Amino acid sequence: MVFDTEAAFEEAVIEKLKAYGWDDAGGVIKRPTEQQLLENWAAILFENNKHRDCLNGAPLTQTEIQQVVEQIRVKRTPVAINELINGKEIIIKRDNADDELHVGKEVALKIFHRDEIAGGQSRYQIAQQPVFSSKSKLGHDRRGDLMLLINGMPLFHIELKKSGVPVSEAIGQIRKYAAEGVF
């Protein structure tokens, strides 16, 4: 197929992904900010961990989400991050006073498990045109094409180019974003 515009290519990819279950019945998340992606992830983490033995029906606070993010941030390679999240749990210390059973105690959050891929509690979402704020005052905000989220966690970033544009341009764009700390 030939695509005269990147937008047409993007829509075709989204339709194909939806055919394979990447839509989660909630629709495509359009132009999300980093904060909206974090809120989406926190909501899914809560849904998958809300039972009495974990979050006890009390949503994650901002500081609890930051504990999760920090544990991922200190990992420097995709392999280290994969080891942390794949089939394991992330330990946080509860500070939500609404969880009287666990406040001040550690709980283990299930992120996702390999045996639940394509089943179980796993949720598959598409974020279209995610917006990333610049990390410096001199830089520009960035916008991606597509991100694929599993249980709210952005695991795949896809940059698309219209027909006739070399793939190396998409690769260069991803490298530039990575060097700028966008991801």
Rank of each mutant, 00 (worst) to 15 (best):
G87Y: 04
K137E: 10
D53H: 11
L45Q: 14
A170D: 08
Y177L: 02
Y20E: 10
L17P: 00
I91V: 15
V131G: 01
G26A: 08
L38G: 04
W22P: 00
F112P: 08
I111Y: 11
I174W: 01
N40Q: 12
E15I: 04
K18N: 09
W22R: 01
A58M: 08
V13S: 02
V13C: 06
D95C: 01
Q125P: 02
A118V: 14
N40G: 08
Q67N: 06
K50M: 12
S168I: 13
E116D: 15
A178D: 11
V131L: 05
A42G: 14
G139Q: 07
S122V: 14
L60V: 10
I150N: 01
H113C: 07
G152L: 13
P154T: 13
L55M: 15
H102F: 15
I14S: 04
L45S: 14
I174P: 00
E116T: 14
A43D: 15
P59S: 06
V13P: 00
R52I: 15
K50P: 04
G21M: 03
D145M: 01
N82I: 04
Q62M: 02
L155Y: 06
S163R: 01
E169V: 12
K50H: 13
K50V: 13
K161N: 09
E39C: 00
I29Q: 06
L155V: 13
L55H: 09
H140P: 00
L37A: 11
K110N: 15
V107E: 14
L148Y: 05
V165W: 00
E106L: 11
I65W: 07
H113K: 10
F183S: 01
V167L: 14
E39Y: 05
R143W: 00
S163V: 03
E39V: 05
S163T: 15
Y20M: 02
D4S: 05
D53Q: 14
D98F: 11
K161C: 06
L37W: 11
G120Y: 09
D99F: 08
L138W: 07
A42C: 13
D23E: 12
K18L: 07
V68Y: 08
K162H: 06
P78K: 01
E11S: 13
F156K: 02
F3L: 04
L160D: 05
E159L: 02
C54P: 13
A7E: 12
M147N: 03
K105S: 15
I92P: 01
Q62G: 10
I126W: 03
E64W: 03
E100W: 15
E10H: 04
K75V: 06
P154M: 13
A19F: 03
N40D: 14
D99E: 09
I29M: 14
G139F: 01
A118C: 14
G26M: 09
Y20H: 03
M1H: 10
F183Y: 14
Y124S: 07
W41T: 15
E89A: 11
E10G: 05
P130C: 02
T33A: 02
L138E: 12
N151H: 08
Y177A: 04
F183N: 05
G144Y: 04
T61F: 01
L84H: 01
A178G: 11
G57Y: 11
F3K: 03
L101R: 15
N56P: 06
K88S: 15
G57V: 13
F9Y: 07
E34C: 06
I171N: 10
K16W: 06
K18P: 03
R114A: 13
G172D: 10
L17K: 00
Q35G: 03
N151V: 08
L55Y: 12
K162N: 06
A19D: 05
V13D: 06
A58E: 07
T5P: 00
